[in-house]
């Protein structure tokens, strides 16, 4: 997948006033592979709704989301399944980790589906993101910031054309946010993937090609 297009996208529960002044809602917008985008907004402006629309788990919107020119409403479940394994990665705001599993098991549950990382590569990433020694620890015992980093690594454990991250550093300090940003930049260079990040204000410190006001 090379291009994600938004054409007149707007949540059905938004009034015209809610959409006024937005560069995203009710507009035409194109996200290209290999580039970084930041979607900024205050709370309640629909960041998470935007992410849910684009990753195909909510359909309560008007307008169109197009992947390589094709409306995602027409995608079959098997197509979504393939995309979620091999081209489209999503880091959810609520992280969607399994608290009763360990860090390694949470990563393994995705990685055994894709076989993307070796065990040592995952260990290296954990180490780099400040989680060394935590691999056998249950996620329920981790801090929110640590969980955010585990969810980030899990999102990377697959081939990527686009990476969508919903407030990925909301619980991270500046130091850890910069480490995460450096990993994202390296992955963009290595894989040539596009990155779309949402933020309430404390954004992932990345060099963005475009900042979009929601």
């Amino acid at each position: 997948m090379d291009v994600i297009e938004l054409d007149g996208l707007c949540p059905v529960f938004f009034s015209a006033a809610d959409c006024s002044g937005s560069e995203l809602w009710n507009n035409s917008l194109v996200f290209r592979k290999g580039r970084a985008y930041l979607v900024e907004a205050a709370s309640g402006k629909g960041k998470s709704s935007f992410c849910s629309f684009v990753c195909g788990i909510r359909h309560d919107y008007t307008g169109h989301v197009l992947f390589d020119g094709r409306d995602i409403r027409t995608f079959a479940q098997t197509e979504w399944r393939d995309m979620r394994r091999s081209s489209f990665g999503m880091m959810f705001q609520d992280l969607e980790l399994f608290p009763e599993l360990t860090v390694t098991e949470n990563l393994d549950i995705k990685n055994r589906l894709t076989g993307y990382y070796s065990f040592s590569e995952m260990e290296d990433l954990l180490c780099r993101l400040g989680l060394s020694g935590k691999s056998g620890q249950k996620v329920s015992t981790l801090s929110l910031g640590e969980r955010q980093r585990v969810a980030f690594i899990r999102t990377l454990a697959q081939p990527l054309d686009f990476l969508l991250m919903d407030e990925p550093v909301s619980h991270l300090d500046v130091f850890n946010a910069e480490i995460m940003a450096s990993v994202v930049a390296e992955e963009m260079d290595k894989r040539g993937c596009g990155v779309i990040v949402t933020s309430l204000g404390h954004a992932l410190p990345l060099e963005y090609d475009r900042r979009i006001r929601l």
């Binding site: 990753c55 788990i57 399944r81 393939d82 979620r84 399994f98 995705k110 589906l113 894709t114 697959q158």
Partner: peptide
Amino acid sequence: MHSVLFRLGYS
């Protein structure tokens, strides 16, 4: 669990 697995790409 099933909803998360579904979003991760499980059949």
